[in-house]
Design a protein around this nucleic acid. Structure first.
Lengths: 140, 140
DNA sequence: CTGCATCCTTCGGGATACTG
DNA sequence: CAGTATCCCGAAGGATGCAG
């Protein structure tokens, strides 16, 4: 998707009614909620960590809780439930005793993983510069 | 950065002291806060919208407020301040009356833009499937 | 026009206790 | 083991008013 597709003037813009429109187009509600959709997926720390943890294959609930320091049962459960709802992870319950449940990425989830890793690449490349920028800003 | 660099067992792991470690490694605190750093940048709706709006070039404050529906003055100001602190946008104030202030992406901000657009690409490609998944989940 | 300060509400999410 | 249910607090963020 190009930027011009994402950012589009609302059809039959009434901008001039309210004010002189500036040099730039306006995000319409559809695209704003589109952004919201993305952030619901990857704008959340726990989701990212869960997806990253599942990169190697199926992992069971208690191992996820172990692998992700600081996550509460509540948030782990909620995160997994949402990821399953979105079709990013698959849940498999084995009818054993004690019960065993494994989670793994779906192909969709795997494709998201690679995209998120691209973001991690960017961050890894630039976080030193960002830290410098912050220190310079805070010093000035 | 590869996943194995991001996700690394803490040095001299004491995992076996507490419990039998699962099949997967554990995120250490450094990498968890690394994730947090990314999300502070792109996990926020307003930041993403501001960066997207600045894609074409310099935009002044009031035009940003117009271009981004629903943003409050408070959040726009805070978002711009943080983006400036991180060195993603540049602020230029013209000593005129009435005052005029323009914001534009730095090269660093532009590089982040392309990465975020990759995420938008993924979302555009897959959001239909995600919606189907959700509907199927909610129906079942 | 471009903000900053304050109040106030909402709610994400941690802690804890309980269940199949 | 793998969750669910409840309480509760701090932070995010909108609304409003003021200032340079």
């Amino acid at each position: 998707m190009s930027r011009d597709e994402v950012r589009r003037r609302p059809s039959n813009s009434r901008a001039s009614v309210r004010r002189v429109p500036g040099p730039c187009a306006r995000w319409d509600d559809e695209n704003a909620s589109f952004i919201r959709e993305i952030l619901d997926l990857v704008g959340d720390k726990w989701s990212v960590l869960v997806i990253g943890t599942l990169a190697d294959g199926a992992v069971r609930y208690s191992d996820l809780a172990y692998a992700i320091p600081g996550v509460s049962q509540r948030m782990l459960t909620l995160t997994l439930k949402q990821l399953k709802r979105d079709g990013l992870v698959e849940r498999t319950a084995y009818p054993e005793v004690p019960p065993r449940v494994e989670y793994q990425l779906t192909p969709l989830g795997t494709s998201l993983l690679s995209t998120v890793l691209a973001l991690a690449d960017w961050s890894a490349t630039n976080h030193a510069e960002i830290r410098r920028n912050r220190m310079a800003y805070d010093a000035g």
